[in-house]
């Protein structure tokens, strides 16, 4: 590729990339949109509903950024409010009731930072999704297709499989935010992007995503067909797994498992641990 991580961030944010609805319309058939969280409102930044994946009904949920300036404003630039996450959870619970797999497409700079969002419990809404998704009794596959901005992305990614498009990014904080907090200098965002390890390759090497989807034919018929075939195959496999919930638990449980023999400090720890007779085979 030859691109540095900050170039990848810019690519992930590029307006010309396919958005959530493009994936829904091109991968699935017969999409029926379902609105509202039944509590407060309907968040246009998250689109959800029913569709066929090949011949089987599935629940699809996507964060939608929009294409035109007008549509992007209407979609709040893909920054969901609490009611968006609550709509998503409602649709997931509905999927569970009717035994449908759930497929999520994620593309957000983050959950919206606003007064109304705080008043209506942005933190609580995300927390509830995380908790409920861990035991949802149907397969969940989440695809990061653009920006994977922190908790606002994770709220749709507590899944059995998480895949990333080659030029999508997944990060705990934006590189600009990180640079301004740590170094009081937003112009150091490129350095922050490199340090945060936010590319698809980084996420895969950290064991946080299972698959990287190539982008050389991004947005073409062949591109969507390839994703459809992969989704079909994966969901077929997951649907037959009797230990789905246990495996999902283990998937997240092992992330960032640390002890005093931390892997990254392995090179230094015989010194750091002062020869306490540590069993090297732990590594």
């Amino acid at each position: 590729m030859g691109q540095n991580p900050y170039d990848r961030v810019k690519l992930a944010r590029d307006n010309s990339r396919p958005t959530g609805l493009d994936y829904i319309k091109n991968i699935f058939q017969g999409f029926i949109e379902l609105h509202g969280d039944r509590r407060f409102g309907d968040d246009a930044a998250i689109v959800g509903g029913l569709a066929y994946l090949n011949k089987s009904p599935v629940t699809v949920i996507a964060i939608e950024k929009g294409h035109s300036a007008k549509e992007r404003a209407m979609r709040n630039f893909g920054a969901p409010h609490p009611e968006g996450y609550r709509k998503a959870l409602r649709l997931m619970k509905q999927a569970e009731k009717f035994g449908r797999p759930v497929i999520c497409f994620i593309d957000t700079s983050g959950a919206y930072c606003g007064i109304g969002a705080e008043e209506r419990g942005q933190g609580q809404a995300i927390a509830e999704n995380l908790m409920e998704m861990t035991t949802l009794c149907v397969p969940i596959v989440s695809l990061l297709v653009g920006e994977g901005g922190s908790g606002g992305a994770l709220a749709l990614a507590v899944a059995d499989r998480v895949w990333m498009l080659k030029n999508s990014v997944y990060s705990v904080i934006s590189p600009e935010g990180c640079a301004s907090i740590l170094w009081k200098d937003p112009s150091k965002a490129p350095a922050a992007a490199a340090s945060l390890k936010l590319t698809a390759e980084d996420a895969k090497s950290l064991g946080i995503v299972e698959r990287i989807l190539p982008e050389k034919d991004l947005g073409t018929k062949a591109f969507y067909e390839r994703i459809r075939a992969l989704l079909s195959e994966e969901i077929g496999k997951l649907s037959k797994n009797p230990d789905l919930i246990e495996k999902r638990y283990e998937r997240f449980r092992r992330m960032g498992a640390v002890t005093e023999f931390d892997i990254a400090s392995a090179a230094t720890w015989p010194v750091a641990c002062g020869n306490k007779g540590i069993n090297y085979e732990h590594l």
């Binding site: 995380l130 908790m131 035991t135 922190s150 908790g151 997944y170 705990v172 997240f252 449980r253």
Partner: peptide
Amino acid sequence: GARMQEGLLSLMQMAKTSAAIKKHSD
């Protein structure tokens, strides 16, 4: 909030702790 110096690994702790709490709650 999440500790940014551990990047995505910090973010994943939100899911990991939520999963353990759900198990305890269930």
